[in-house]
């Protein structure tokens, strides 16, 4: 078979699909600049007042703050737990590693709504419902699979002899992990952490069951705002979210070339 550049038809089709997929994003971004107090396309006039409205509104600021704390917190906890679990699984330190892997990865497959309902029932039963801590635990549950997946993939790329070399050269188990294993799996972990962060940041179905009135996150706020009647400040906050996400992804790609690990 001879290698060929895709023909005109295939290229146009691909371009069309990409455009189609991006239309909602473009629509939201355009709408956020409209002067009207309802969402409309094309925007009527140009203004930044909706951005100003969002950034001066306590409700939005608190929600953004909550979301960031939650996303950073759950990612850090997931990193610690996920990497430790992956290492134990990978080195076959205990029986049943396959089963454990499936268990840790399960939240990827189980519908989020089901996880939400299940956690709500569980925390109600143990009388912990409605606290921020509960929300944090829930987000760890849904973000840990991303860490485990990337950690396992990265670990499988390491020559076991490299760790043995460190041990023989006088490093104890922890030092070996810190100085040799961890630096070698870092690019993969950065990728996993990004997915974890984004997953926590955008989650609605689990959060909505568990968030108390004072713990509203940004996606929940957007969701409820839209229910009450759409105004362009929702579009403005969405635009901010899109820009922030794109910036983080670009930076991470520059930093680690993480697309290799996705």
């Amino acid at each position: 078979m001879n290698e060929q550049r895709p023909g005109l038809a295939v290229s146009s089709l691909a371009l069309l699909v990409i455009l189609f997929l991006q239309i909602p994003v473009i629509v939201v971004m355009l709408a956020s600049f409209s002067e009207t107090s309802y969402l409309t396309i094309p925007p009527q006039g140009w203004t930044l007042k909706w951005f100003e409205a969002v950034l001066t509104d306590r409700t939005y600021i608190d929600a953004i703050k909550n979301s960031l704390i939650l996303a950073v917190g759950s990612t850090v906890i997931s990193l610690v737990l996920g990497v430790a679990a992956s290492y134990a699984i990978f080195r076959k330190m205990m029986p049943g590693s396959e089963a454990l892997t499936s268990l840790l990865m399960a939240p990827l497959i189980i519908p989020s709504v089901v996880i939400g309902v299940a956690l709500l029932q569980y925390f109600t039963l143990v009388g912990m419902r409605g606290s921020f801590f509960v929300l944090l635990i829930a987000h760890v549950v849904i973000t840990v699979p991303y860490i485990v997946r990337s950690a396992l993939a990265s670990l499988s790329g390491i020559d076991l002899a490299v760790e043995e070399a460190a041990r023989v050269l006088g490093a104890n188990g922890f030092t070996t992990f810190r100085l040799v294993t961890l630096p070698l799996i870092k690019p993969g972990l950065v990728a996993g952490a990004l997915f974890s962060f984004v997953t926590s940041m955008e989650n609605v179905p689990v959060t909505i069951f568990l968030a108390g009135p004072r713990d509203t996150t940004l996606p929940i706020l957007i969701f409820t705002s839209v229910e009450m009647g759409v105004n362009p400040s929702v579009a403005a906050v969405s635009t901010l979210l899109i820009i922030a996400t794109a910036a983080v992804l670009l930076a991470a790609e520059r930093w680690t070339g993480f697309h290799r690990f996705v």
Binding site: A161, V162, A165
Partner: peptide, 9 residues
């Protein structure tokens, strides 16, 4: 080691 096992980083 046979594979040298140098620390690549």
């Amino acid at each position: 080691f046979q594979s040298y096992a140098l620390f690549p980083h």
